[in-house]
Simulated assay, not measured.
Amino acid sequence: MKNTGSVINAMIRYYSGDIKRINHFIKVYGYSKAIGEMENLDDKTREILEVTAVVHDIGIKVSEEKYHSSAGHYQQLEGPAVAADMLENLGYEQEFIERVCYLIAHHHTYTNIDGLDYQILVEADFLVNLDEDKTPGDGIRNVKQNIFRTKTGISFLNHLFGV
């Protein structure tokens, strides 16, 4: 069945027992959904964003097995193929899957951001990572200045971290 709930279900099964990874993608999904709605994304772009938020780190499992690392560049390399298989099995169309895979393959690349779905995904992932990594104030201010662009993402960052 093709809906975000089925993607979340598939990802919980994929990361069965790894509550840290599951909680991470659920938080990124929540911020992505909220920012996408507040920034008035059209329905198709919002669906792409929300599904990508759920699967954005799907490459970690393969990266850790293959390279003994969860580094971003390995996630970007390994994630698209795993996500494509999952999304095909859930009934998503090829064009949709291609955009999701593109976003997965670039979500740790912060130059040449080519769409609001990409920008919001990056911002949502940062909102979660800044907290999970206990990033100090200077690092948060640097990310705000260099990465964040949406009005909603900046507002969330200000209210969450007091910057």
Rank of each mutant, 00 (worst) to 15 (best):
M1F: 13
I8M: 12
M11Y: 08
I12N: 12
R13W: 13
Y15D: 15
S16G: 14
S16V: 10
G17D: 03
G17K: 11
D18H: 14
R21K: 13
R21F: 08
N23G: 09
F25W: 08
I26N: 10
I26A: 11
Y29H: 14
G30D: 08
Y31K: 02
S32Y: 03
K33W: 05
G36R: 01
G36L: 02
E37F: 07
E37S: 09
M38C: 12
N40L: 15
L41Y: 02
D42P: 03
D42Y: 06
E47L: 06
I48D: 01
I48K: 06
L49Q: 08
V51P: 00
V55I: 10
H56L: 04
G59Q: 03
G59I: 03
K61T: 09
V62I: 14
S63E: 03
S63Q: 02
E65Q: 15
E65C: 12
E65A: 15
E65S: 15
Y67S: 10
Y67L: 13
A71Y: 07
G72K: 05
G72V: 06
H73A: 08
Y74N: 11
Q75G: 04
Q76H: 05
G79R: 06
P80R: 01
A81T: 09
A81H: 09
A83D: 02
M86S: 03
M86N: 01
L87M: 07
L90C: 08
L90H: 06
L90R: 11
G91Q: 08
Y92H: 06
Q94R: 15
Q94F: 08
F96K: 09
E98Q: 15
E98Y: 10
R99H: 10
C101R: 05
C101S: 06
C101L: 02
I104Y: 03
A105T: 03
H106K: 14
H107F: 03
H108M: 14
T109F: 05
Y110N: 07
Y110R: 14
Y110L: 12
T111G: 13
T111E: 14
N112T: 09
I113N: 06
I113F: 05
D114W: 11
L116K: 14
L116R: 07
D117K: 04
D117L: 04
Y118N: 07
I120N: 00
I120H: 00
L121A: 01
V122D: 01
A124K: 07
F126P: 03
F126L: 06
F126E: 02
L127M: 10
L130F: 01
E132C: 10
P136W: 07
P136S: 09
D138P: 07
I140Y: 04
R141G: 06
K144T: 06
K144A: 13
Q145S: 14
I147K: 07
I147Q: 12
I147T: 11
T150R: 00
T150A: 00
K151F: 00
T152P: 01
G153D: 00
I154C: 00
I154Q: 01
I154K: 11
L157P: 01
L160E: 08
G162D: 10
V163M: 04
V163T: 10
